[in-house]
């Protein structure tokens, strides 16, 4: 039947994985880059968690993790938020709201773009 829940796996499963939560503590932007700090995970960690920790031995952004592992962006955010709280992943800084920091960052970026 068309109501068969097995035929619409995308609607519930992702948020079962996150215990129903849709936001991580950090509410990470799509471009935030994370890297694995400590690759030891509890026995029974979800395969998605294992995959994220394995992938992020090299730095990857939230949106790259979602794309490479074919996970929902919202799910990646929640899982990465949890793993960051647990000290498994470290998150890089994203755009600052402090003007002086922003000016400094844009200066660095401009220098970088010109040197491309």
């Amino acid at each position: 039947m068309s109501d068969d829940p097995l035929r619409t796996p995308g609607l519930t499963r992702p948020y079962v994985l996150t215990g129903g939560r849709t936001r991580g503590a950090a509410d990470l932007p799509l471009e935030a880059v994370v890297v694995t700090e400590r690759a030891t995970l509890p026995i029974g960690a979800a395969p998605e968690v294992v995959a994220i920790v394995a992938l992020c031995r090299a730095p990857y952004s939230i949106v790259e993790i979602a794309t490479h592992l074919r996970l929902h962006l919202g799910v990646v955010r929640v899982l990465v938020g949890d793993l960051t709280d647990q000290g498994v992943l470290a998150v890089g800084v994203t755009a600052s709201s402090r003007l002086d920091e922003r000016v400094h960052l844009l200066e660095r970026l401009l220098e970088g773009v010109r040197a491309l």
């Binding site: 619409t8 995308g10 609607l11 992702p14 948020y15 849709t22 936001r23 949106v63 790259e64 979602a66 794309t67 074919r70 996970l71 929902h72 962006l73 919202g74 799910v75």
Partner: peptide, 24 residues
Amino acid sequence: PLSTDAAMTEVAEGIDAAELTPHK
């Protein structure tokens, strides 16, 4: 250039924002 499936995004965000119907 990578392409993340916007449908995935739509479902995720749609559940988050209740007014958006999370249609596939």
